[in-house]
Computed example of a mutant assay.
Amino acid sequence: MSVIEANVNNYQRKLKDWSRVSFGNISRALVEKKKKIKVAEGEAVRSGISDQLHVLKVELRELLTKEEKLWQQRSKLHWLKKGDQNTRYFHGKASQRCRKNCIKCLRNPNGEWVEGDDRIAQLFIDYYSELFSTSNPNQLEEVLVTISQPNSMNADLVKPFVKQEVDMALKHMTPLKAQGPDGIPFHLLSTLLGFHW
């Protein structure tokens, strides 16, 4: 065995030991934790003290998060191996995603099921049109009078801009992020407009 093979085997063994210590067998730990929670639930019902149950549930959530990350890593590894190649795996994943993202029927406000793309689209349009339309408020002034606004807040909102405030705001902008919908980063704008600090 060469020195390189020995080193690789040594590191592989160390990684397995690290994984066992850091993560252990997550599936086994989940089963054990769920059993402990059942026992703790019985104790909590009898004694009325649920501190231990709360701690166990927090630990269970952490284990479930670890398990989810483990499965994500495994699926990414599988995706890297099988990937976008023209394989059965790829077509199965694409078909599954298409089925998952498809709305086949919806229930309308009357409780009836609506099917068909056109009828479902019309249901969405009707719902959001109703949601975002006005219900004809005619006593808006009375509502606004009841909202209390501190005078200091109002004064801050209507006072004129001061050059120092604008300079400070500009200096605190992230240079490589676009501040508006045009997508132009602040660094480029400041260069074009001649701002220099």
Rank of each mutant, 00 (worst) to 15 (best):
V8H: 06
N9R: 13
L15N: 12
D17G: 10
W18M: 04
G24F: 01
N25Q: 06
A29P: 00
L30G: 07
V31K: 14
E32R: 05
K33R: 12
I37D: 10
V39S: 10
A40G: 06
G42E: 15
V45F: 09
G48P: 15
G48V: 14
G48S: 13
I49N: 15
L53W: 07
V58F: 07
L60P: 00
E62T: 08
L64Q: 13
L70Q: 15
W71T: 13
W71R: 15
W71M: 15
R74N: 12
G83N: 11
D84A: 09
N86F: 00
N86K: 06
K93Y: 06
K93W: 04
R97V: 02
C98H: 11
R99N: 14
C102M: 14
C105V: 06
C105Q: 11
L106G: 05
R107M: 15
E112T: 04
W113S: 08
W113A: 09
E115Q: 10
G116H: 03
D118Y: 05
R119Q: 14
I120K: 14
F124M: 10
D126N: 15
Y127I: 00
Y128A: 01
Y128I: 10
P137F: 02
L140F: 10
E141W: 09
E142H: 08
T146I: 09
I147H: 15
S152R: 07
K159G: 00
V162L: 08
V162M: 07
M168A: 11
A169C: 05
M173V: 05
M173W: 01
Q179W: 11
I184A: 01
P185T: 04
F186V: 06
H187F: 07
S190P: 01
L192M: 15
F195M: 03
